[in-house]
Design a protein around this nucleic acid. Structure first.
Lengths: 341, 341
DNA sequence: GTTGGCACTCCAGTTCAGCGAGTGCCAATG
DNA sequence: CATTGGCACTCGCTGAACTGGAGTGCCAAC
């Protein structure tokens, strides 16, 4: 019985603190939420919650503030999933439906996510490793100079320029082109790379591959395993940082620094790709000390939610239910769009 | 004689203010710079400079601060061009030389520029309109489904997918491919678009073009005139905003907002593409009221410095000579790299 | 277990005086 | 006429002292 009320108190404190940005005291609490008990009772509960580590006092004789542990409990057990509002769904739809290509989808997503959550939004580009090869084109710019164009299902295009030691006849080029496409087209990146490699290392000892073939295949395999381009992320909504101009040094500065470090961002997002659900990292739960006062709400998108991740970064004091709903909604819509195209 | 000294005083004030971030007084000035006159004399000069609008006082009985007009005079007439240091050149070279493709060049440039200037750096992608067509590839993914790949000299690749009403024979495809390339390859975008259009509107009334030809040409011309992709910019170094955490509302917030608005950024940079030199917009000189307390230092890059622009955005109180040198150095290096590849 | 009462704590905001950097003006000087 | 030293004045900044109020913790009563 008291246990139930305690949780209700914790929930109320989280909600009030998120809304007001100020430590919440016992009296204000009984007024705003109609708990049918006296402030003194609440005080006892608050003291207990503080003992258990869910609350903290900025200083003696101020109200209580949730700790990371408090937020965690709130997110895990107390928050009711806020359904995305019709207005939000409409915003997402009208924003994303106008997108013309992959770049555009990613950029629009980051914008709409930043707008909905009023936080800094981060969207990772679809990773190479989950794409399939749509087509490989080999163009002779000059007799000994080839342009390789690798077109992937996610809409991404990679190009490489190579010089050959000797000229390549048009007929040979055509043959090479069709062999390469036969091996790679339609396959997942990893398989395509393997199939291509097999072309120049034939188990069944056929004719030795030509120098041009080796060169082309090497370059393509290299482009396919170039994980550098996996590391691309787009950031948006940094203007939202302006909302919490105080706490500059504790909140904004480390966040800005982290945003510059794409590697960190990718790690943060990466954790989220695992399950299908929306992941929440609160405060110091992660390994990044500088981000102790920020939370990350992220999820995967694309088929099986495994193509790449998107999410937001914000202060631990944030509207978790709303943010989680927005992140999930954008991810779903994005998956759908990518699936259609 | 006094005129000379007045300018020296202005220069000294700008330099000191930039270095110390504090209003500079007459006494401190004679001490730091060895002007061989008394503080009282300087005071007279300062009063005169204030009358002419080059200086201002934050409040009575504080030191002087340069006005926008003061900075303008400083930039135009008083600053000696700081030659890029060897260390800077080395930093730029080692940073940019590792770049593998266009995206990479742009991203690396923005990083190195942000690092050198310790400001927010902005680099615009090479504009379509100044590129030439390197190659057009037409691939039949299916008999009635074509993939068009447009490869530009700047390293950019555009792709379009089209469906035909009827199947296209391999021979016809080859013919079309060679006609299109004959018309477009090597030409500047605008010319290429015109030449392609001519293919389907033959003045000398030849045979009417096939439906496939019309479709392909239309799509290519459309891709060439797609100025949306001209509007891409990359921003870096926002973490440098942390350095001036005070003035949050006057400096940081509007800047963050401007950075989100790519259109504004492009306009700011756009002004710079005109001459070959480094352009400086100081404070309220531009039409953007919110950016009244920021300056933009930018220049063009690429052949004739006309391919696109890059630059930095920072507080009016900045090291103009150093910043201008860095911007110019990065632009030059970038031009060179793009030229080579 | 809940409640009202009460003493206590401590932040936040305000007032006020003193300090010091800096100015403007003036009269004197070369 | 430019320069200089002197001097009174301004004004923001700093720190101390004070106060109001919100909030707590504890205790005794129900």
């Amino acid at each position: 019985m008291q246990e139930d009320r305690r949780l209700a108190v914790l929930r109320a404190i989280v909600e009030d603190y998120v809304a007001t940005e100020e430590p919440v005291g016992s009296k204000a609490l009984v007024e705003r939420h109609h708990l049918n008990v006296s402030p003194a009772t609440i005080r006892n509960d608050m003291a207990a919650l503080e003992d258990e580590g869910y609350l903290a006092q900025p200083h003696t004789s101020a109200g209580r503030v949730p700790t990371d542990k408090g937020y965690r409990l709130f997110v895990d057990r107390l928050s009711t999933v806020k359904p995305t509002s019709a207005a939000e769904r409409r915003a997402i739809a009208s924003f994303l439906d106008g997108a013309v290509d992959l770049d555009d989808v990613v950029h629009r997503s980051v914008r709409v996510l930043a707008q909905l959550t009023r936080q800094v939004a981060v969207v990772q580009y679809p990773s190479l490793s989950h794409s399939t090869v749509r087509h490989v084109e080999i163009v002779a710019l000059a007799p000994a100079r080839l342009l390789l164009v690798l077109i992937l299902s996610s809409g991404r295009v990679e190009q490489r320029l190579i010089e050959l030691d000797s000229d390549l006849a048009e007929a040979d080029l055509a043959a090479l082109r069709s062999r390469v496409n036969l091996a790679a087209t339609g396959a997942v990146i990893a398989d395509a790379a393997a199939a291509l490699t097999a072309l120049i290392h034939p188990e069944t000892g056929g004719a030795a591959p030509s120098a041009a073939t080796v060169s082309v295949v090497d370059t393509l395999v290299d482009a396919m395993s170039d994980h550098r381009s996996d590391e691309r992320v787009v950031v948006g909504g940094t203007a939202n940082l302006a909302r919490f101009g105080d706490n500059f040094d504790t909140s904004v500065r480390p966040l800005l620094e982290a945003l510059e470090e794409q590697v960190v961002l990718l790690k943060l997002l990466g954790e989220a790709t695992i399950g299908g659900a929306v992941t929440v990292r609160i405060g110091a739960e992660g390994p990044y000390e500088e981000l102790a006062s920020t939370s990350v709400v992220a999820t995967g998108y694309g088929p099986d939610d495994a193509l790449a991740s998107l999410g937001i970064v914000g202060p631990t004091r944030m509207d978790y239910p709303g943010t989680m709903a927005a992140v999930r909604a954008v991810a779903r819509y994005m998956s759908r769009i990518l699936d259609e195209s």
